[in-house]
Write a protein that binds this DNA or RNA. Structure first.
Ligand code: FES
Ligand code: FES
Lengths: 132, 132
DNA sequence: TCTATATACGATAATTTTAGTCGTATATAA
DNA sequence: TTATATACGACTAAAATTATCGTATATAGA
């Protein structure tokens, strides 16, 4: 409960690795996967997704790989989580209105408050704080 | 990702219901289950667990049920979550030392910091804030 | 004392989510 | 032309969550 997924952890590890790479060169999926013991194909998909989200950009072909293409200081952890995993909330009913218990639920209001606190926490933390 | 489980939500709903019950009487599993549409047997197990944890106490037999037996003001949401779901952390490596990536992981330190922030958030919120 | 009702609890099954793999296509440096 | 790297949809496997079953025990009330 309340865990980040491996997908997000792999994404963060890769992002930090790419950022700390010697300038001028790109970091390949293979290099990152072997360094941290991440399944290659899975990491590839995650990097492709981050590419589509504009966080990194790809260089194809031999000696190819990825480089950072966004200002990680301007992206919050909340936004990053939502780019990678979709809507962020303690419970489905925060976003998904067809939650079957919503009518009878007696804790909706207080839970929404706690939920907002958690979103605020991740909103005021930048990606850079993890990758720097 | 970062969701509370139904088990915890059911537990909170039940706790609030029991607390708001007319004084002198207890609330039965059946009453709570039908009121909120929670599977009866599942709720029963959760209430039994809360009983073992000292949060509520049971009265057996006809007209039986549960009543609050702890001061919910003195119990944090973090402690409650850990009573119900076990160790609370953004990632397994916070508690489980045989995390296979721990050696190579390049984001352990910053992730631990974020994790502590989340634990702090739930530590400074009391159960009473949800059930009152 | 008998019966209906309620909690106690381990075992198991179903479902959903997460994690990982496969196959194929495209781009490009050497 | 070949080796290497990204792109991506479909699929499979594993793990976690959610729910059910079966049986035992306690007790209020007829
Ligand atoms: S149904 Fe969303 S908090 Fe209960
Ligand atoms: S292995 Fe725990 S944060 Fe990476």
């Amino acid at each position: 409960m309340l865990k980040i997924t491996r997908k997000v952890e792999y994404a963060l590890i890769a992002l930090r690795h790419i950022q700390n790479n010697s300038s001028g060169t790109v970091a390949s999926t293979k290099e990152i996967a072997t360094t941290y013991g991440i399944p290659h194909q899975l990491l590839a998909k995650i990097l492709q997704q981050m590419g589509r989200e504009g966080l990194i950009s790809a260089v194809k072909g031999p000696n190819g790989g990825y480089k950072i293409s966004a200002n990680l200081n301007e992206i919050s952890l909340k936004d990053f989580f939502e780019k990678i995993e979709g809507p962020l909330g303690l419970m489905d009913c925060y976003f998904n209105s067809d939650c079957n218990q919503l009518k009878a639920c007696n804790i909706l209001t207080p839970i929404q408050r706690i939920n907002q606190n958690m979103r605020d926490l991740f909103s005021k933390t930048s990606l850079q704080e993890i990758t720097q």
